[in-house]
Write a protein that binds this DNA or RNA. Structure first.
Length: 603
DNA sequence: CTTACGGGCG
């Protein structure tokens, strides 16, 4: 009797185990199949198998199902699985959140994050990293800070990935020092966290600090930098136009074999173009086996900025022929190319084709470029027409009207100047500029009464124009210039004399002064314009030893490049500081391009 | 068990 019971128990047990084993087996199989699905058809059939085999109540399997949909960017379908689940765990919620981030809907991710605690499911470090990531995409510093305190309260503030996501979040909202605070608080760091901090500096125009931190990394860590880190460092070099440092980093890229990586190559293309060596940019570009959108866009933008407008357009057409689809940035390069080569109608055609044939909606930057292009060549009626066409709620619209105001002044179009000025005043933007320019325009057409009225209106309302300033950094000394007062700078006279000399040479080559032309005649406003032009980021001239702000290059070089080549310009500028320049053996660095140089003791 | 962080051009 007892033996019978024992035997039947044994039998039941055996059946039970074998069923378990077979269940376990299919379970593993289903998970493996789900993990390997890379197309929707097989996923749908696997989904059917899950439903038929009764595994749809299994949280673990359903989570895998959600992940499979997310990998295929079918977040809606993932959400449907989510809705049908009876037992969701923290992984279910986190996976769906990251699914929404994948399809560029960070707001939906944050919505889920908010709803989660109501189901008595609490976030883990994965969830927090995902939520912070959503805040980064949205530049939502408010939610970001709130979530940060939530992280601290939950005790996850030492988690490496969570900290890294916080560094990025603060950086994307331009709170660079908060990023650094998180970075310094970390007990353990990896390449990703170092890369994040370095790129936060690079993306916030703090290239010097980026390079300083990179040096620290090289000195303190035994691991080699990877392609992510190197492209951030090259980006920092580009914004500072540190050609020598850039070349040394390029040699590191070659040594590690990242020179055909699209993003690394693109950052190099950009770096050389900003340093005035577009030949190198092109050489790097041509070495990429099958260049895609990113390298094409970089080289198109680089060529356009360098002044090779037609060549830039050739590259664009080449890209289209290869079937590579351009994006909004590519078109910005194309419009710049047209603008700087005087191909106005071609530019307008391209602007038109953006939506018509490529489905890309132009944003304010494209319109600003087009209005600028029309305005600088005196086609003010069209410029004004286009400006009116742009919806007034568009971001940065004031720049557009500011540009129109400035060009209508150059061409003495009081009617348009007044219209643009009034728009600016309505928008409460660039008030001083609007008043001053409107007043000057009235004066220039002899309407003194109006000129005087505008000036006094401006004074009455207490609007003051802050003097624009700019600086030239030469090795360890900074020279500051204030608008309308060149003498306030230690060697301001030398700068003005040099610019005058350059203007003479430009005229020799047939340059006709237009709007935003180099203006070094003795008119206060125009000196101001010139000095204001020397603003924003730095562009080094003369092998990384002499730098002037990038805005300078942009405005100054825009004109200069039409008649002087870059090297000539660099040489000319370097006259200002002849004594400060150390002549370097440039040829030594040419080897970097070919990878034969092993100069790695630079850091 | 499954879920998380970094690079480019504007």
């Amino acid at each position: 009797m007892s033996a019978l019971v024992k035997s039947s128990a044994k039998k039941r047990c055996k059946i039970h185990i074998s069923r378990l084993i077979s269940n376990f087996h299919t379970n593993i199989q289903i998970v493996q199949q789900l993990q390997n699905t890379n197309n929707l058809n097989s996923l749908v059939s696997n989904h059917t198998i899950v439903l038929k085999s009764g595994f749809s109540n299994d949280t673990f399997i359903s989570n895998h199902l959600i992940n499979s949909y997310i990998r295929l960017h079918k977040t809606e379908d993932a959400h449907r699985v989510f809705d049908e689940m009876s037992d969701r765990n923290v992984v279910t919620w986190t996976a769906l959140m990251s699914g929404y981030i994948n399809i560029r809907q960070p707001k939906s991710a944050l919505k889920l994050f908010e709803q989660m605690p109501r189901s008595i499911i609490f976030p883990n470090p994965f969830t927090f990293a995902t939520a912070i990531n959503a805040c980064s995409y949205l530049s939502d510093i408010g939610t970001g800070r709130k979530t940060h305190s939530h992280i601290v309260v939950s005790g996850f503030h030492s988690n490496l990935v969570v900290c890294t996501s916080l560094i990025n979040m603060y950086g994307k909202s331009n709170y660079v020092d908060d990023s650094r605070r998180v970075f310094d608080s970390m007990e353990n760091k990896n390449v990703v966290s170092w890369t994040s901090m370095i790129s936060v500096y690079a993306q916030n125009a703090r290239g010097e600090e980026a390079l300083l931190l990179f040096r620290e990394y090289i000195n303190s860590k035994s691991y080699e930098p990877n392609q992510f880190l190197l492209s951030s460092v090259i980006n920092a070099c580009a914004s500072l136009a540190k050609l020598v440092t850039g070349k040394v980093t390029h040699s590191a890229v070659i040594r590690h074999g990242y020179d055909t990586n699209e993003v690394v190559a693109s950052s190099l293309i950009d770096m050389y173009a900003k340093c005035g060596l577009f030949d190198y940019s092109l050489k790097i570009f041509r070495r990429i086996p099958n260049p895609g959108l990113i390298p094409y866009t970089s080289v198109i933008v680089g060529a356009a900025k360098y002044g090779l407008g037609r060549f830039s357009l050739d590259l664009f057409e080449e890209m289209l022929e290869k079937g590579i689809r351009p994006n909004d940035v590519t078109f910005l390069g194309v419009l710049h190319a047209c603008s700087h080569s005087g191909l106005i109608d071609t530019g307008l055609q391209y602007l038109n084709s953006m939506y018509e044939t490529h489905g890309i909606i132009p944003d304010s930057k494209h319109y600003i470029c087009a209005v600028d292009m029309l305005g600088r060549t005196g086609r003010l009626d069209e410029a004004c027409q286009l400006a009116k066409f742009v919806p007034p709620e568009v971001k940065d619209i004031e720049i557009l009207w500011g540009s129109l105001l400035s060009s209508s002044r150059t061409y003495g179009r009081l009617d348009i100047a007044v219209e643009a000025g009034e728009r600016l005043i309505e928008m409460n933007q660039h008030l001083a500029t609007a008043y001053v320019t409107m007043s000057n325009t009235s004066a220039s057409v002899g309407n003194w009464e109006n000129a005087y009225r505008l000036r006094s209106e401006m004074n009455k309302s207490g609007i003051n124009k802050e003097p624009g300033s700019s600086w030239v950094e030469l090795r360890d000394k900074v020279y500051v210039f204030y608008a309308g007062n060149v003498k306030s700078c230690a060697r301001g006279d030398e700068v003005v004399n040099l610019l005058k000399e350059l203007e003479v040479r430009m005229k020799e080559r047939g340059y006709v002064r237009g709007r935003k032309g180099l203006v070094f005649v003795d008119v206060e406003d125009e000196v101001e314009e010139m000095v204001l032009g020397l603003h924003s980021e730095k562009l080094a001239l003369g092998f990384g030893l002499l730098s002037i702000p990038e805005g300078a290059a942009i405005r100054v070089i825009k004109n200069l490049r039409m008649c002087l080549d870059c090297h000539e310009f660099f040489k000319a500028i370097s006259k200002i500081v002849e004594r400060d320049i150390i002549v370097r053996d440039v040829n030594r660095f040419h080897h970097f391009i070919d990878g034969s140089c092993t100069c790695n003791d630079f850091w």
